[in-house]
Design a protein around this nucleic acid. Structure first.
Lengths: 245, 245
DNA sequence: TAAGTGTTGTAACAGAACGTTACAATTCGT
DNA sequence: ACGAATTGTAACGTTCTGTTACAACACTTA
């Protein structure tokens, strides 16, 4: 993957660092992570990064000052991660040369969207998946319209899905024939970690099956992989254009 | 940049001076800053300014008196910056020849908007960015005219929107397929922060849906993302020219 | 095969998030 | 300063989602 954007995460919170790294990797980025400003500049000497996710609140040198130094050093796009949410703080951040900011606690997917937007804006490196992400999926006559967030069955009638169900199905459709663990699914649909005895995905799968499986007791599309997770078993064709007609 | 408007900031507060200067520069203006009236008139001898942002409360000569002298000296537009907010002060300021007026603490973007408005009004120099922003958006046959602040449905008939509804729709149209949090929406449409249990965006969304969704109960354009915010689900084309016809 | 162990399916519940209405507060134009 | 229009707040009903509990199922081992 020579053309994969390389992202550097600078955050002192280990939890955020690792989970964010995994999330971004899962979305096609190359990711490195550091815990402080010193390590950040070290890392930057060894590799070229396409974007930096910088926590504004870190021990040692202040994030804002780091941001200023970054901007002074070059033109690497920066997305600020901050707990501050007042107006002035935001504007100060953007003034210092950050290309975007997001406040904690944040939805990883939103950060992902902003990273993509910044990369698109700065333009030299295409964000992965973004263009590649199809506008629709089709499987066994079923049609999933990403833009409209709708699902039609082979007869062409709309099947009502809740937002969560839609996200889940979308994730399955995007990874056909792949066993997805509950962790992954939770991560990809909700952007959060699973607790020890988290059964929410199971329940969501059950609810989804009820709507798309002819016989939910004998599922054809979403198969269970015992002690593994679930697989979407269908030939999926991805359309890059919106649903015609 | 020969055609870039040149703005002079006169404020004794260094913090405001620098951060405002950077903000305006970031928005395409050429900016100079001075700390008192004497320096202001000095600067004006050396350069021609298209607009002056003048703090009314400065050590030395009073801002109002400066404003009077400015007006006497020529026709440079002035935007007053002040902590005073009573009606009479406002009248006095405007009577003295200020073209607009904003109270501290202020949202920089609001000042930006006022500066643009004044420059547009005085007319000789086009404000930057203003032109670059799309003058219209079109989605699914609907047409949003930014300049006229009007909305036409696919049949071409005008749909009456309040200012707030229009701003909201404009924000959505400018960020299609992006989940926008209530915070962001409030920020972008009103320039303010959300309180803990702020439902105003929900209500505004509801009102907007009533006007643009065929079935508000099953919205097609503005979809809800539970515990996330809202997404505008439509292919949007931005037009750089005003709506023809 | 039967018991035992761990895993999954799903019903039921509870809490949270959302939509909408009515009304209060604010703003705006005159 | 007044009235009209717009916007915010509060309240209530509805929908969605996570949790829990338990039954059903699948694998293992005897």
């Amino acid at each position: 993957m020579p053309n994969t954007p390389h992202i550097l995460i600078a955050d002192d919170d280990r939890q955020i660092r690792t989970s964010l790294a995994r999330f971004l990797e899962g979305n096609g980025f190359r990711v490195s992570a550091v815990a402080d400003g010193v390590a950040m500049f070290q890392a930057m000497e060894n590799s070229r990064f396409d974007l930096i996710v910088l926590d504004i609140m870190m021990p040692g040198e202040n994030g804002l000052s780091l941001c200023r130094r970054l901007r002074a050093a070059g033109k690497v796009p920066v997305v600020l991660l901050t707990a501050l949410s007042t107006h002035t703080d935001r504007i100060v951040g953007l003034e210092l040369g950050a290309d975007d900011y997001i406040c904690k606690p944040f939805d990883p997917r939103e950060l992902l969207a902003r990273i993509r937007a910044v990369l698109r804006r700065t333009g030299d490196t295409p964000a992965p998946e973004e263009r590649a992400r199809p506008a629709s999926y089709e499987f066994e006559g079923w049609r999933l319209d990403v833009l409209r967030r709708t699902l039609r069955n082979p007869e062409g009638t709309l099947v009502e899905l809740t937002a969560g169900e839609f996200d889940l199905l979308l994730t399955f459709a995007g990874h056909p024939q792949h066993v997805l663990t509950r962790d992954q699914l939770l991560d990809m649909t909700r952007g959060r970690e699973a607790n020890v005895f988290d059964r929410s995905i199971d329940v969501q799968v059950s609810r989804l099956r009820r709507k798309i499986e002819a016989d939910p007791q004998a599922p054809v599309f979403i198969k269970t992989v015992r002690s593994g997770g679930y697989v979407f078993c269908a030939g999926v064709v991805a359309g890059s254009q919106g649903a015609p007609g």
